[in-house]
């Protein structure tokens, strides 16, 4: 009780999110997949054929620390966005479904303020997910796949050596980039969450948006559209491990997510601020 009662109003959404068992199950499942891959790699010693598996997976047998980055690449295309879509789709529609939304609004919590807080909580959730995947990947990689001394230089994608300090700050940047990359999906799910009182519908809608985008990326005819697809620059986080760093796609990825977040949050705000709450 004391812990929660000492928090400010802005922390309430975080308390609600992280006091829910579902949230931790999602984070656990998210870490289960890379851990399974690590176990299988350690057991069989078969690295994927070059160019076929996720980034860095071919290299982790030599350096277990790299598995933290490989784990990110494993969960990035599907698992992470699913977790984000589910949590973000829940945010407003879940409150509406449970009936707690009306009590929040008569508390009163301003509607715009509520959206901002929800989005803040989702962003924190994404960050916790990404950091947990990196941390678990690092531990699992070092335990199962070889623990080269920490001072060992990592070979960049361009074949040059990166010092441990360089790898550390680039990994922090990668965590930040992936977190931001998820915000487009999060904003979509939040927007849909203000349209419907069914959290499932909101999550599924956001997933449809995500899968549609991934699909269009593979269709040549959709090429003019591709620079605007939300998933277009997701995998560009590995540009941080090129030497010199290729900022171009990272910048485009951040700007694109920014546009999606601004537009979708504005749409969520326009809808929610004037919506009749009948749940």
């Amino acid at each position: 009780m004391i812990g929660s009662s000492d928090r400010g109003a802005e922390g309430v959404e975080l308390v609600k999110l992280f006091s829910r068992r579902r949230t931790w199950v999602a984070i656990l499942l998210l870490n289960l997949l890379p851990t399974t891959v690590a176990v299988l790699l350690a057991w069989t010693g078969i690295a994927p054929r070059p160019g076929s598996g996720p980034a860095f997976l071919a290299a982790v047998l030599a350096n277990g620390s790299l598995f933290s980055i490989a784990a990110l690449a494993i969960v990035l295309p599907l698992f992470l966005p699913i977790a984000v879509a589910v949590v973000a789709g829940e945010s407003v529609a879940g409150e509406a479904e449970a009936g707690t939304l009306r009590y929040l609004l008569v508390r009163p919590v301003g509607r715009t303020r509520l959206l901002v807080r929800k989005f803040g909580a989702i962003t924190t959730f994404v960050l916790v997910c990404v950091v947990s995947v990196v941390a678990v990947g690092y531990v699992v990689g070092r335990l199962l796949l070889g623990n080269a001394p920490l001072s060992t230089a990592m070979i960049s994608l361009s074949g040059s050596a990166l010092s441990p300090a360089q790898v550390a700050w680039r990994s922090v940047a990668a965590i930040g980039f992936i977190t931001v990359s998820m915000l487009g999906v999060a904003a979509m799910a939040l927007f849909l969450s203000t349209l419907t009182d069914s959290p499932q519908a909101a999550s599924l809608g956001a997933l449809a948006f995500l899968i549609g985008s991934s699909l269009l990326l593979t269709v040549d005819a959709a090429r003019p559209l591709q620079p605007y697809l939300p998933t277009r620059y997701w995998l560009s986080f590995i540009d941080l491990y090129r030497d010199p760093i290729l900022w171009s796609n990272l910048e485009r990825g951040l700007a694109l997510q920014g546009v999606y977040v601004v537009v979708l949050l504005a749409a969520a705000w326009a809808n929610f601020a004037t919506r009749d709450i009948t749940s």
Binding site: M1, S4, S5, A9, V15, K16, Y103, V109
Partner: peptide, 10 residues
């Protein structure tokens, strides 16, 4: 906890 959270949210 519900009461505390609801109070804190405003």
């Amino acid at each position: 906890r519900n009461l505390v959270l609801q109070d804190a949210s405003g």
